[in-house]
Amino acid sequence: MNRVAELKQQLKPGKVYRRENLTRYSNAVDRHLAQLVDDGTLEKVASGLYYFPKRSVFGAVPPEDEVLVRSFLKDDHFLLTSPNSYNALRVGTTQLYNKRVVYNHKRHGEVDLNGKKFFFHKTPYFPKKATLEFLLVDLVNHLDTLAEDREMVLNNALAKGKTMDYNKLKYAVRKYGHSKTKKLLQPVLQQMNPKQYAN
C-alpha cells in the first residue's frame, strides 16, 4: 500500500481535518493532500482545512456549518447563529439572510469556509444556546444591520420583551446587551417588575 492510500485509510466520511493533524500519517503531507484533492477524495474548504465528503445518492454531502467552525476554531466554545434566527421572535423580521455569525473567544473577522462567509465575533460572553431572550437582546444590539423597517421591528421587540420571563430577560440584557441596548430595554424591565428592578 502506498503512502497516499495509507493516509486515505485514516479518513472518515463527513469529517473536516486540519493539515497539522494529518502529518503523523504522511511523510509528505502537502503533496499527498494535493493528490487527494486532485482525485476528488478530499475538498479543500479553507487554508489548512480539508473535508472528506459523505456520499449520498445525490452525490457529495457538504460539511455541516458546525463541523466547519469547530475544526476551524479547534474547540467547541462557540455559538453559531444567523439573523434568520430572529424570525423565531415574530417581531417583523421576514428577510432571509445568507449570513452566519459565530460568537467565540478566539477569532474576529470574516472568514470563508467552503465557499460560505462566516462572521466571527470575539466576545467574552455568549450562551451555549440561542434562547429567545438572547435573540431579543442580540436583535436590538444589531438593529442597524437589519433590512426591515427598524423602528417597526424595535417597537415590536420592546413589546415582545414584556411577554418574556423577567429574570431570563434581565440576565440576557445585563450579560449580552450593548450599552445602547441596555438603555432601550431598561424601561421594559422596569415596567415588568418595578420593585425588583429597583433593588
Rank of each mutant, 00 (worst) to 15 (best):
residue 1 M to H: 12
residue 5 A to L: 13
residue 7 L to K: 06
residue 8 K to H: 10
residue 12 K to Q: 15
residue 12 K to D: 03
residue 14 G to T: 03
residue 15 K to D: 14
residue 21 N to R: 05
residue 22 L to S: 07
residue 24 R to D: 12
residue 31 R to Y: 09
residue 32 H to G: 04
residue 37 V to S: 02
residue 38 D to R: 13
residue 40 G to M: 08
residue 41 T to A: 10
residue 44 K to V: 01
residue 44 K to Q: 13
residue 48 G to A: 11
residue 50 Y to H: 06
residue 60 A to Q: 05
residue 66 E to R: 13
residue 66 E to P: 00
residue 67 V to T: 14
residue 68 L to Y: 07
residue 69 V to S: 11
residue 74 K to S: 10
residue 78 F to P: 09
residue 79 L to A: 04
residue 81 T to H: 00
residue 86 Y to H: 06
residue 87 N to K: 13
residue 87 N to F: 05
residue 92 G to K: 06
residue 93 T to S: 05
residue 94 T to H: 07
residue 95 Q to E: 09
residue 99 K to P: 00
residue 102 V to L: 12
residue 107 R to H: 09
residue 107 R to D: 07
residue 108 H to C: 02
residue 114 N to I: 01
residue 114 N to Y: 15
residue 120 F to M: 05
residue 123 T to R: 13
residue 124 P to K: 15
residue 128 K to H: 07
residue 129 K to E: 14
residue 132 L to D: 10
residue 134 F to Q: 05
residue 139 L to E: 11
residue 139 L to H: 04
residue 141 N to W: 06
residue 147 A to P: 00
residue 147 A to F: 05
residue 152 M to S: 08
residue 155 N to R: 14
residue 157 A to Q: 02
residue 157 A to Y: 01
residue 158 L to G: 00
residue 163 T to A: 04
residue 165 D to E: 12
residue 166 Y to P: 01
residue 168 K to A: 11
residue 171 Y to V: 02
residue 173 V to Q: 08
residue 177 G to P: 00
residue 178 H to W: 10
residue 179 S to M: 08
residue 179 S to Q: 12
residue 180 K to G: 00
residue 180 K to Q: 14
residue 181 T to R: 07
residue 184 L to A: 12
residue 185 L to F: 06
residue 187 P to K: 09
residue 188 V to M: 12
residue 188 V to W: 10
residue 190 Q to T: 07
residue 193 N to P: 00
residue 197 Y to G: 08
residue 198 A to E: 12
